[in-house]
Design a protein around this nucleic acid. Structure first.
Lengths: 270, 270
DNA sequence: ATTCGGCTTTTATCATACAAAAAACAGAGC
DNA sequence: GCTCTGTTTTTTGTATGATAAAAGCCGAAT
């Protein structure tokens, strides 16, 4: 039942991540643990799992208190967080009602994480791929058009880091940095959070992602093409370079999808 | 100071809106007022206004209590909402620190509203237009490819409502419904919240938007083309139809932008 | 000088009490 | 019998006060 772990791992994490990373924190630290956060986590995940359908009433605060063994304060603060994410709405005498899916802030990091843990991962991956195919080519094109020297330098630095990556996690980190740099270079503040959310979701999905050990460096030439196009300030070339890279990704997504939807085939690993 | 209207309209709304509106509630009801919400509103708006830069510490809870004349409970619940939106992070002994902009959940309805109230509206409008030009053609194309009969019916119903609209607000409502219907027909759950956020932001910006009285019906032919393309299940035609409509919008955005950036020209109205 | 331990500030959590909203119910008036 | 109205009750909203835990600060001891 919803293990709210209160062990000492939190302390260690806290000590480690004090100084902010150099420039753009690629991976946001995983938000320190606390009671209300755990409770919100649990309830939010349950909602996304469909345990409480939109329109239904959640158990009242007292019941949650009992269920989690925490005070009303903690439960209420958790509820407030879920309200802030558009998952629920609560009113006196009524209780907390799950809002229609359309109002859920699916583009919130947490909500997206719960969703992608709950939903059919193949569906999720396919939809994600669609969004990437819409956004990323245009983002790169904008970057090619609008980049300044400093932004270009960051893109190149990230590329170098990718080229030098030896481990899977190093490669993923550098890859994320590369994409974020392009995002920033596009010069559209609204695109930035969108891209970040996508990356954060891909991170969650990474067991399904093409990030296998053999993939390190395989897509490096593709990334180089993007880099060159942006450096040369050729939007159309950048667009095409990204599309070409995404075609590769799509191939893999389709592969995963077909191996998952046909239960007869073996899935490779547990 | 943050007028919290508490009149009896809420009761009427409550009674009327028990049964959910036909299919997709076009405009989410404006989230009932409450103390913690007002406080969150105020603090959030201030952060977006730049009154508290990223990295700085907010006043502690006690000070907020005093400033707003509310209890610590209310302040804390407000803080929790802002935490949920990625604006701040708080820790014992430290206080609440404003997170770097990259972590702000700018795609949250509230945050976007605060942002677009605080930022340079012209910049905002231009960026928004860019995002629309990226997303909407592809959304329509997907809708043309994936729509089912029911979704098509909703699109047509919305279009009829637009055609019959006499007042500005009726037209805006129907327009929003039209776009939402297309969004849903695209069949990608990740695109839906994105589109909704954009519409909600456009609603906020609507003084700068092309929604002048004379515009009622002017773009109706353009919308009809979109409708026909989706009905005929021709993605490329849908894409082009949306692009053509957006060219019109962009013309107006540029007009607003140039009249705003050159302070010499007169702005039409206060 | 360095390290260890208490001091202090601030949030985190708990407990309790009361206010307010709104549904449900009961009773008066017709 | 029906409706309208006032009361009751349930649930969240807000206030208050107390205690716990985190983490910077500072002084003392080695």
């Amino acid at each position: 039942m919803s293990g709210v772990d209160r062990n000492n791992s939190a302390r260690a994490r806290a000590r480690a991540g004090r100084a902010l990373p150099p420039k753009g924190a690629v991976a946001a630290q995983p938000a320190r643990s606390s009671l209300h956060r755990s409770v919100a986590q649990d309830i939010g995940a349950r909602i996304l799992k469909g345990e409480f359908a939109p329109g239904t009433l959640l158990p009242n605060e007292a019941e949650w208190c009992e269920k989690f063994g925490v005070s009303r304060t903690a439960v209420r603060e958790a509820i407030k967080m879920l309200m802030a994410k558009g998952l629920i709405q609560s009113r006196p005498k009524i209780g907390s009602r799950v809002l229609p899916r359309a109002q859920w802030n699916l583009l919130d990091r947490d909500v997206l994480a719960w969703y992608c843990a709950a939903a059919n991962p193949v569906h999720f991956l396919i939809h994600m791929q669609q969004v990437r195919e819409i956004l990323e080519p245009e983002t790169a094109a904008l970057a090619a058009a609008n980049r300044n020297a400093e932004q270009m330098a960051e893109i190149e630095a990230a590329f170098l880091q990718m080229a030098e990556a030896k481990t899977l996690s190093a490669w993923n980190y550098a890859d994320a940095r590369f994409h974020q740099a392009i995002l920033l270079a596009a010069g559209n503040e609204l695109l930035v959070p969108l891209g970040l959310v996508i990356e954060s979701a891909l991170e969650n999905m990474f067991t399904y992602t093409a990030s296998q050990r053999g993939d390190i460096g395989r897509t490096l030439p593709g990334h180089r093409k993007i880099l060159l196009a942006i450096r040369a300030q050729k939007p159309e070339a950048a667009r095409q370079a990204v599309r070409s890279l995404l075609r590769d990704t799509r191939r893999i997504v389709n592969l995963v999808a077909s191996s998952r939807t046909r239960p007869a085939s073996r899935r490779g690993r547990a």
